[in-house]
């Protein structure tokens, strides 16, 4: 039964991806991308990567859908029809995809206990982490304790990026608000085309 669910979920992902390529209505494409990330989150749960699945559901289905809708409010609603097929790009994509698939041929079988990733430090995490760190979830112990400095660095990077975005957006809003009482007819930013949904 689980295999049937896997196959059907993967088939849904293929159908969604093809529909996203074929559709010209960009709102529909954004909605379909939300569906796609929900499907991939379900696939991650099936693969036992629950934390990745949760991030995918929060970022992919939640935030990025809203961000893309915000972009859509500033641009047109329909994609311009493609005039001709771009064969060099097709060639590059095909070669890259073939190289990636060729690279997976050397990989150990999925779930193979003799794979290198299961031999290096994973046994120590599995055996010793409840005693050394404490939480029953191994991923939590790895992220918060064994790779604590790494996580601290990541958090610093994301925090700095957030501050940068807030400073950029906040200065635009403040300037617009200051300019409004004196010259209300002058828009601070170029007005978008009237194509909002």
């Amino acid at each position: 039964m689980e295999q049937i669910i896997d196959i059907v979920l993967l088939a849904f992902m293929v159908v969604t991806a093809i529909a996203m390529i074929r559709l010209r209505n960009l709102f529909a494409v954004v909605m379909l991308s939300g569906i796609f990330s929900l499907l991939s989150a379900a696939m991650f749960v099936v693969l036992d990567a629950v934390d990745v699945a949760f991030t995918e559901a929060a970022v992919g289905a939640g935030i990025s859908t809203v961000l893309m809708l915000g972009t859509l409010a500033l641009t047109f609603r329909d994609e311009r029809p493609a005039t001709r097929a771009d064969w060099p790009a097709m060639l590059v994509v095909t070669v890259t995809g073939a190289a990636l698939i060729y690279g997976t041929l050397d990989m150990p079988r999925f779930g193979d206990p003799d794979a290198p990733i299961h031999q290096h430090v994973a046994p120590r995490y599995i055996v010793d982490s409840p005693r050394e760190v404490g939480p029953p979830n191994m991923v939590t112990s790895v992220l918060a304790s064994y790779r604590g400095y790494d996580t601290l660095g990541e958090t610093t990077v994301i925090f700095t990026a957030g501050i940068g975005v807030m400073v950029l957006l906040g200065s635009v809003t403040r300037r617009r608000r200051r300019a409004r009482p004196t010259t209300p007819a002058t828009p601070a930013a170029p007005a978008p085309p009237e194509g909002r949904p």
């Binding site: 608000r177 209300p184 828009p187 949904p197």
Partner: peptide, 24 residues
Amino acid sequence: FVKYSSLAGPGADRGASPKGGTAP
């Protein structure tokens, strides 16, 4: 987003500008 073209709601950004020239 579909209704107001922004997350803030109806009166947040365009209520103060009479021409509605600001970006949503």
